[in-house]
Amino acid sequence: MLQLALLAFLASFICYFVQWTFGQPMIDQPICVGLVAGLIFGDVTTGIIIGAAMEAIFIGNVNVGGATSAEPVTGTVMAVCFVTHMGMDQGAAITLATAVAIFANIIYSLIFNVLMSFWAPLIDWAADTGETKNVFIVHFGGALVMNAAMAIPTFLGVYFGAEPVANLVNVIPAAVTNGFNAAAGLLPAVGMALLLRMLWNNKTAIYFLLGFVLVSYLGMPMVGVAAIGAVVVVVTAYREMDLMDLRNKIKSLRETGVAAGTLSKAEVEEEDFFA
């Protein structure tokens, strides 16, 4: 189990380190974490599938400053580990991983917001010395310490939990497993609902209705819906650019004191419309 726990630690550490050291490229999102964990555990397909399922759950999860709601890296890595090496059913692993992600957020907050505050004096010292080498050492040294600390819960979860999970898999009744699968199927709907709470307004509602009609009544695959969505975005962007140019033109004419009578009829109508 030690080797398996070390692999889980490595997967979490890579995701944390790249995310917080190289400009936050969003590698800590479940779909990316699933890929990294799949590569390390030797089953890329399973890693991507679980990562995509977890992404649907946490797609509306946004952590701002000290206000955090979930920490999906630990949950996703553990889910991939339990499915690929413990033989756990995918639905049960995803359901368990969701609870782990919420619980791990407490540890994440303590490490990120409390423990690393003690690193601040070293940062001040490196800045005061004016030496690039000292800044480099403190920066990457702090990154190693912080991200290693954040990956420790994943290590402990796999090290102490892998064997009990393996034993539990053999005694779980089929009815319980089916219940986990049903719960896992509902969790993405919860994630989408959280996302809609932030995005929903009267102007965008029509686009959600369009997507629903395309999928439910026309049977269009998600890739096709995404392609249509991309076209709508481009068309809307061009329209907004044209309107912005028109507003800027009218504003410029007003600032230069051009009388409305010197404008064409169409331009006067446009000015009255946007006034």
Rank of each mutant, 00 (worst) to 15 (best):
T46G: 05
W200I: 09
D28Q: 13
W125N: 04
G38Q: 02
C32N: 10
F118I: 08
P173M: 05
V231F: 11
N63S: 10
T129R: 10
G42E: 07
I228Q: 05
L246E: 03
L7G: 08
I107H: 13
V225K: 02
G91Y: 00
M244L: 13
F155H: 03
L35H: 02
V223E: 15
A174T: 13
V64P: 01
F140E: 00
A127R: 09
A52K: 14
I49L: 14
N201E: 06
V176Y: 12
T154L: 08
T98D: 05
V145G: 09
V213L: 14
I228H: 11
C15A: 12
I27R: 03
T84V: 12
M150Q: 06
F112L: 13
S252Y: 13
Y207L: 15
W119I: 15
A226M: 13
P173Q: 07
F273R: 14
A184S: 04
F41Y: 10
F82P: 00
C32D: 01
D43Q: 04
S264C: 06
H85T: 14
Y217E: 14
A166C: 08
E240Q: 12
L199C: 08
K251P: 00
Y217N: 14
S69R: 12
A101P: 01
H85S: 10
A92L: 04
E270G: 02
A97I: 06
Y238A: 15
E163C: 03
K249T: 10
Q3I: 06
G211A: 04
L187H: 02
N248P: 03
I48F: 12
A184M: 00
A182H: 04
V231Q: 09
L186N: 01
L122W: 14
L246H: 00
G87T: 01
G191M: 02
P121F: 11
H139L: 15
Y108G: 04
V33C: 07
V62C: 07
T256C: 05
T74D: 04
I14L: 15
L6H: 08
D28N: 11
G75I: 02
K249D: 09
I102P: 01
M86N: 08
L4N: 07
A37C: 02
A166P: 02
G219W: 08
L168H: 09
V158L: 07
L144Y: 12
G219S: 05
T84R: 02
A259E: 12
L122I: 08
A226W: 06
I40R: 00
N134C: 09
I31P: 01
I59F: 12
L6Y: 06
S69E: 09
L115S: 15
R254S: 09
G130V: 05
S117A: 15
N105I: 02
W20R: 10
N202L: 13
V64M: 10
V36M: 05
F136H: 08
F17N: 03
E240V: 07
D43F: 07
A183P: 00
T154P: 10
A120H: 13
L246W: 00
F41R: 01
